[in-house]
Protein backbone atom coordinates (compact mmCIF):
# COMPACT_ATOMS: atom_id res chain seq x y z
CA UNK A 1 0.00 0.00 0.00
CA UNK A 2 1.25 3.45 -0.88
CA UNK A 3 1.03 6.45 1.41
CA UNK A 4 1.48 10.13 0.69
CA UNK A 5 2.95 12.36 3.36
CA UNK A 6 2.98 16.11 2.84
CA UNK A 7 6.45 17.53 3.20
CA UNK A 8 8.15 20.92 3.28
CA UNK A 9 11.18 19.65 1.39
CA UNK A 10 12.39 16.77 -0.76
CA UNK A 11 14.39 14.88 1.85
CA UNK A 12 13.41 12.39 4.55
CA UNK A 13 14.73 14.85 7.11
CA UNK A 14 12.37 17.57 5.84
CA UNK A 15 9.67 18.97 8.06
CA UNK A 16 6.24 17.34 7.91
CA UNK A 17 3.87 19.87 6.26
CA UNK A 18 0.48 20.52 7.87
CA UNK A 19 -1.15 21.91 4.71
CA UNK A 20 -2.31 19.52 2.04
CA UNK A 21 -2.95 21.48 -1.18
CA UNK A 22 -0.19 23.98 -0.44
CA UNK A 23 2.48 21.54 0.62
CA UNK A 24 5.67 22.01 -1.37
CA UNK A 25 6.43 18.33 -1.77
CA UNK A 26 4.59 15.03 -1.53
CA UNK A 27 6.51 12.07 -0.19
CA UNK A 28 5.25 8.79 -1.63
CA UNK A 29 6.05 5.89 0.65
CA UNK A 30 5.59 2.30 -0.52
CA UNK A 31 4.94 -0.01 2.42
CA UNK A 32 5.86 -3.21 0.59
CA UNK A 33 9.23 -2.12 -0.76
CA UNK A 34 9.94 0.49 1.92
CA UNK A 35 10.97 2.93 -0.80
CA UNK A 36 10.20 6.62 -0.80
CA UNK A 37 10.04 9.10 -3.65
CA UNK A 38 9.39 12.81 -3.62
CA UNK A 39 7.04 14.61 -5.99
CA UNK A 40 6.93 18.36 -6.33
CA UNK A 41 3.58 20.11 -5.96
CA UNK A 42 3.08 22.04 -9.22
CA UNK A 43 -0.02 23.85 -8.00
CA UNK A 44 1.33 25.45 -4.87
CA UNK A 45 0.96 28.99 -6.24
CA UNK A 46 -2.42 28.51 -7.92
CA UNK A 47 -5.02 31.04 -6.83
CA UNK A 48 -7.52 28.33 -6.10
CA UNK A 49 -8.07 24.62 -6.55
CA UNK A 50 -4.74 23.52 -5.11
CA UNK A 51 -6.46 21.06 -2.77
CA UNK A 52 -8.45 19.19 -5.45
CA UNK A 53 -5.40 19.07 -7.74
CA UNK A 54 -3.31 17.63 -4.94
CA UNK A 55 -6.06 15.05 -4.35
CA UNK A 56 -5.97 14.08 -8.04
CA UNK A 57 -2.20 13.82 -7.87
CA UNK A 58 -2.55 11.45 -4.91
CA UNK A 59 -4.88 9.31 -7.01
CA UNK A 60 -2.49 9.33 -10.00
CA UNK A 61 0.37 8.21 -7.78
CA UNK A 62 -1.78 5.32 -6.59
CA UNK A 63 -1.85 6.29 -2.93
CA UNK A 64 -4.35 4.61 -0.62
CA UNK A 65 -3.60 6.88 2.32
CA UNK A 66 -2.73 10.57 2.69
CA UNK A 67 -1.19 11.97 5.84
CA UNK A 68 -1.35 15.73 6.34
CA UNK A 69 -2.32 18.33 8.92
CA UNK A 70 -5.63 19.38 7.42
CA UNK A 71 -7.79 18.90 4.33
CA UNK A 72 -10.01 21.53 2.76
CA UNK A 73 -13.65 20.70 1.99
CA UNK A 74 -13.02 20.19 -1.77
CA UNK A 75 -10.01 17.96 -1.23
CA UNK A 76 -12.00 15.97 1.33
CA UNK A 77 -14.81 15.38 -1.16
CA UNK A 78 -12.47 14.15 -3.87
CA UNK A 79 -10.41 11.93 -1.58
CA UNK A 80 -13.60 10.42 -0.17
CA UNK A 81 -14.85 9.68 -3.70
CA UNK A 82 -11.58 8.00 -4.60
CA UNK A 83 -11.61 5.87 -1.44
CA UNK A 84 -8.35 7.36 -0.25
CA UNK A 85 -7.90 7.34 3.49
CA UNK A 86 -7.23 10.74 5.07
CA UNK A 87 -5.14 10.99 8.19
CA UNK A 88 -4.69 14.17 10.21
CA UNK A 89 -1.65 14.52 12.43
CA UNK A 90 -1.62 17.81 14.30
CA UNK A 91 1.97 17.80 15.45
CA UNK A 92 4.08 19.75 12.93
CA UNK A 93 7.26 19.30 14.92
CA UNK A 94 8.11 16.11 13.07
CA UNK A 95 10.09 15.13 10.02
CA UNK A 96 8.78 12.97 7.20
CA UNK A 97 10.99 10.17 8.51
CA UNK A 98 9.31 10.37 11.93
CA UNK A 99 5.93 9.89 10.29
CA UNK A 100 7.14 6.95 8.23
CA UNK A 101 8.56 5.33 11.36
CA UNK A 102 5.18 5.76 13.05
CA UNK A 103 3.26 3.92 10.32
CA UNK A 104 5.83 1.17 9.74
Amino acid sequence: MKTIITSAGNKLSSQFELRFGRAEWFCLYDEESGKTSFHENMHIDDGHGAGPKAAEKAYELGAAKVISGDFGPKAKDILTQMDIQMVIVDNDNQTVKDIINMIK
Partner: peptide, 14 residues
Protein backbone atom coordinates in the same frame (compact mmCIF):
# COMPACT_ATOMS: atom_id res chain seq x y z
CA UNK B 1 -8.50 9.72 10.14
CA UNK B 2 -11.22 8.46 7.84
CA UNK B 3 -11.94 4.84 7.07
CA UNK B 4 -13.00 4.60 3.42
CA UNK B 5 -15.10 1.68 2.14
CA UNK B 6 -12.03 -0.02 0.71
CA UNK B 7 -10.63 -0.61 4.20
CA UNK B 8 -12.34 -3.19 6.38
CA UNK B 9 -10.24 -3.15 9.54
CA UNK B 10 -11.03 -0.61 12.20
CA UNK B 11 -7.58 0.27 13.43
CA UNK B 12 -5.65 3.52 13.71
CA UNK B 13 -4.02 4.58 10.45
CA UNK B 14 -0.84 5.61 12.24
Amino acid sequence: FTIPDSINHYTCAI
